[in-house]
């Protein structure tokens, strides 16, 4: 017994030394060099990555970024390999930085974290400052702070345009999404609507946590602007409520805007485009008023 113990201790010692030497099991520290093999696991991360990073830095983006109906960077994404958000996909590219969303691909992210990968998790920004902050943060991680700042400034400028509108003159608006869901307070969409000079009625109603708006209540709200937020690719029952005959006969005769959700799902320059569309609708609504 006593004779075997030192042998065991020796084996342990050698193993530990070897591990320390190879650095296995220890988290890889971010080097001073900008990352050169970035993998993105999230569509919003794809969009920022493809705009901010140098093409040679990008190892992989998600398959969603190539779909022009869902992504605003479909052409940019074409030159890069795609992944499906799975752990095997990620490891294949041997990344030095993985950008993921806070609420998606959770199991993959947990795995990567345990494996010691460098992770950057992006939240869902709800206000303009949060949008700018996210862009800046990613820019820094990529080693492109200037580009990031430029993009953030561009977006901030778009929001700063236009005269401030007082509450009294604000036309009311309701967002109507597939399956009859609307948008509440404290989201990016709500911010954009307010910035456009509209009052988001979806935020004022008591609609439960899912924000489902029955057609009858939509009619009762009588908004000045009706925002139909859907991109109809393939058929789905979810779109049927958006085509209900009653929407074309609303007595309040609202300005009807069709807006693709991809413009405002993610932090990026496209939210400025959504903003300008809504500003136009608000102006039209104010004209009809008079």
């Amino acid at each position: 017994m006593t004779r075997r113990a030192p042998t065991r201790a020796a084996i342990y010692g050698v193993t530990v030394l070897a591990a320390l030497a190879t650095g296995a099991g220890a988290p890889r520290t971010a080097s001073a060099e900008p990352p050169s093999r970035v993998v993105s696991l999230n569509l919003c991360a794809d969009e920022l990555l493809l705009r901010l990073a140098r093409p040679e830095q990008i190892a992989s983006v998600t398959f969603l970024s190539r779909d022009p109906k869902q992504s605003t960077v479909a052409d940019l994404a074409r030159d890069h390999p795609v992944n499906y958000g799975r752990a095997e996909d990620v490891l294949r590219f041997d990344p030095d930085l993985v950008v993921a969303g806070r609420y998606t691909t959770r199991t993959t992210v947990d795995f990567l974290r345990r494996n010691g990968e460098t992770l950057l998790e992006l939240d869902a920004p709800a206000t303009l400052p949060q949008v700018e902050e996210q862009i800046r943060r990613l820019g820094e991680a990529l080693g492109e702070p200037d580009r990031a700042q430029a993009l953030a400034d561009e977006i901030a400028a778009a929001f700063a345009e236009g005269d401030p509108i007082d509450d009294v003159a604000r036309p009311t608006a309701v967002v109507f999404a597939p399956n009859g869901f609307t948008v509440g307070a404290g989201s990016l969409v709500d911010t954009i609507i307010n910035a456009a000079g509209l009052r988001n009625l979806g935020a004022e109603q008591d609609l439960g946590s899912y924000r489902h708006l029955p057609l009858e209540r939509l009619l009762a709200l009588a908004p000045d602007v009706l925002i139909l937020a859907a991109t109809e690719s393939a058929p789905a029952r979810a779109y049927e409520v958006l085509h209900h005959p009653i929407l074309s006969r609303l007595p309040s005769q609202p300005v009807i805007v069709r807006l693709s959700p991809r413009l405002w799902t993610c932090a990026g320059p496209e939210i400025a485009r959504a903003l300008s569309i809504l500003r136009g609708a608000a102006a039209e609504a104010r004209e009809r008023e008079t």
Partner: peptide, 12 residues
């Protein structure tokens, strides 16, 4: 008359 009430009744 196309009031909201009538519309909800007839169309929904």
């Amino acid at each position: 008359e196309e009031t909201v009430q009538a519309l909800v009744f007839v169309e929904l």
